[in-house]
Design a protein around this nucleic acid. Structure first.
Length: 245
DNA sequence: AAACACCGCAACCGCGCAAAT
DNA sequence: AATTTGCGCGGTTGCGGTGTT
């Protein structure tokens, strides 16, 4: 399901990421942050372009990224937000806890678009395949259609607003180890938006502590990393020497 | 069991924008 | 003001998995 690994003309690796590459990237970003995506792979010991690293981090490795089955609430929200924003996936993703724009875009094209074409109005509540899904939760998205939004409280907005408390997950970036160890994909079948509150609440209420769980494999890798700032100094120094020769 | 078609999703590509120089 | 650089976004592709014949 992934592209076969290959090497481009610049010697940059392409295609599927190996576990080792994932570990290197994750360890590096958690340690130093993504201060410069273009330079990062060089310092992290990766033969990848910065763009590829960024994508991998954003869509797969970043703590808190949730993948797998979508809940009925999420699907309803995506449809409503798509009505509102069109193909602005990053905007839509900002309203969905822990979902990435790429993931939402894929889900739209592979699942929701087809259903939506069949019945655009109130689609979110009526055409979800899982018949045993909670009716109450789906009702959340049935009260409004594209035609009555002007006269009533916009259900999209209210639903979205209710989720605003969670939406900054995507901006937590590398400095958060909030979700480490949480297996988001594992319990997707029963998960709901509400279930997402717990780790976030603890994030805001508990004192920040650096997760050291990565240290199990960090020490050996640490040797492979170059500290970004010391390396800057080195680079500058090299440049200084070259310039003066 | 084999061949074929379709699906799902990770990853790539190109473009536009904003900040830096 | 013009150019360069880096980032983020949205569209698209490629390929393994799954279903169908």
């Amino acid at each position: 399901m992934v592209r076969a690994p290959s090497v481009d003309k610049n010697g940059m690796k392409k295609g599927a990421w190996s576990e080792e590459e994932d570990n290197k990237l994750r360890a590096y970003v958690l340690r130093y942050g993504h201060w410069n995506w273009r330079q990062l792979p060089k310092f992290a010991g990766l033969s990848r372009c910065g763009k590829s690293c960024r994508l991998r981090w954003m869509n797969y490795l970043k703590p808190g990224v949730r993948r797998g089955k979508y809940t009925i609430e999420e699907e309803g929200l995506i449809i409503k937000l798509h009505e509102q924003y069109g193909n602005r996936w990053s905007t839509i993703a900002a309203k969905l806890p822990a979902r990435t724009d790429n993931d939402i875009k894929n889900h739209w094209h592979t699942h929701l678009k087809k259903r939506y074409k069949e019945s655009p109005v109130c689609e979110g509540s009526q055409h979800i395949d899982d018949a045993d899904q909670n009716e109450q939760s789906s009702a959340m998205f049935t009260s409004g259609s594209s035609t009555d939004q002007k006269t009533e409280v916009d259900p999209t907005t209210s639903a979205a607003d209710s989720l605003d408390a969670y939406t900054d997950i995507s901006s937590l970036s590398c400095d958060s180890t909030l979700f480490d160890g949480a297996d988001w994909a594992a319990d997707d079948s029963n998960s709901s938006v509400e279930s997402l509150t717990e780790p976030l609440e603890s994030f805001w209420t508990e004192p920040f502590a650096l997760d050291t769980s990565f240290n199990n494999w960090l020490p050996s890798m640490e040797e492979e990393f170059m500290h970004p700032f010391s390396s800057f100094l080195d680079d500058s120094f090299d440049w200084f020497h070259e310039f003066n020769q």
